[in-house]
Design a protein around this nucleic acid. Structure first.
Length: 328
DNA sequence: GGTAGACCTGGACGC
DNA sequence: GCGTCCAGGTCTACC
């Protein structure tokens, strides 16, 4: 019989809303089960692989999280697993109230928290696999990294000793092969220190500048990793942002001026601008595909391609002029 | 500082 | 079923 962890949540926390808030919940080794509103997720603990089923049995805001494990955990492993799950679910997000004060559009729904990975390293690699590629390919890369290297997601030490050609051939990561290995080596050598990035005392600008020095990390990827660190003052602008500007905000013009306009547009949300931007996109996705907690990772969760999204544009009304994008 | 082209994969589309 | 086109962000070379 396995161990069961019970994790207290903040009074506003709602698993089906707050876990299904960012596309990474659809990426391996996460497996969202829309039927019973639970997440199956293997974790790489000190004592070995452990598979968890994470749910919120009360299905109400503020209800405790239950994490059923497929094996008995030592006390140290329980502590370790708890910390990883808290990070994934963003349970320690201290900015929710401030965000709702700044952007009251999301106060009623309670949207504020963004799902992320149990480790900073996984967030970085997932971001690299999402660059210059369509969403289904990102999904495939993550599935294969887990199949080939580690079912609970590759550790930095594992990727650092892989040959780039192996990752390319077996994980379909393409030209990202060398970059992924190089990033992993930076983590292993200590040149990249996750604790430094996670430390709130580290200035945003320092964190951003250091991210931009990583191979394969440009302006979009760096801004995205920043939000995964809980630093929401930068908007990760990409082609989805342009589509959002044109189809939802109703703007016109060439790419470059639209990008500048977007950047300026979200300045009003100050330290929470990514959240405001993202929930506009996410609301649009849900208008197209239904609530995110109903998405199946094998069917509807794979359909976030530009071609698909351009097919069925939601009506732009004066009242509700928000959103579009890929499921990142 | 700005721009063009290469880098890969897989979905969409035309035949 | 096959071939071709295209989307996607980063990096490098060049002006």
């Amino acid at each position: 019989m396995g161990s069961t962890l019970t994790i207290k949540t903040p009074g506003d926390y709602l698993l089906r809303r707050d876990l299904c808030s960012y596309g990474y919940f659809l990426l391996a080794p996460n497996l969202w089960n829309p039927g019973d509103l639970s997440l199956t997720r293997p974790l790489d603990l000190d004592g070995g692989l452990a598979v968890f089923e994470i749910s919120q049995p009360t299905n109400n805001r503020g209800g405790p999280i239950r994490a059923l494990c497929d094996r008995k955990l030592s006390r140290a492993e329980q502590y370790e697993a708890r910390a990883l799950i808290v990070r994934m679910l963003n349970l320690e997000d201290a900015g929710v109230r401030e965000f709702h004060k700044l952007d009251q559009r999301w106060k009623r729904s309670g949207r504020a928290r963004l799902f992320r990975s149990p480790t900073f390293f996984e967030d970085v690699i997932k971001t690299v696999t999402s660059c210059n590629v369509t969403w289904p390919s990102t999904m495939n890369m993550n599935v294969r990294l887990c199949e080939v290297v580690n079912p609970a997601f590759p550790r930095a030490s594992q990727l650092a000793r892989r040959k780039p050609a192996t990752l390319r051939a077996r994980c379909s990561v393409g030209y990202r092969d060398q970059r992924i290995v190089d990033i992993a080596k930076l983590f292993v050598s200590g040149a990249v220190d996750p604790a430094w990035f996670e430390d709130p005392a580290t200035p945003d600008e320092d964190a951003l500048a250091t991210l931009l020095e990583m191979p394969g990390v440009g302006p979009y990827a760096a801004a995205n990793i920043m939000q995964l660190l809980g630093r929401y003052a930068h908007v990760a602008l990409d082609t989805e942002s342009l589509r959002h500007a044109r189809t939802v905000l109703g703007w016109k013009g060439d790419d470059a001026p639209l990008m500048k306009q977007l950047k300026k547009h979200y300045e009003r949300y100050a330290d929470h601008r990514f959240r405001s931007y993202w929930f506009e996109l996410w609301t649009d996705y849900e208008a197209r595909k239904g609530p995110a907690h109903t998405w199946d990772p094998n069917t509807s969760g794979r359909t976030f391609t530009a071609a698909q999204l351009n097919k069925a544009k939601p009506k732009v009304t004066k009242k509700r002029r928000i959103s579009s994008g890929t499921a990142r």
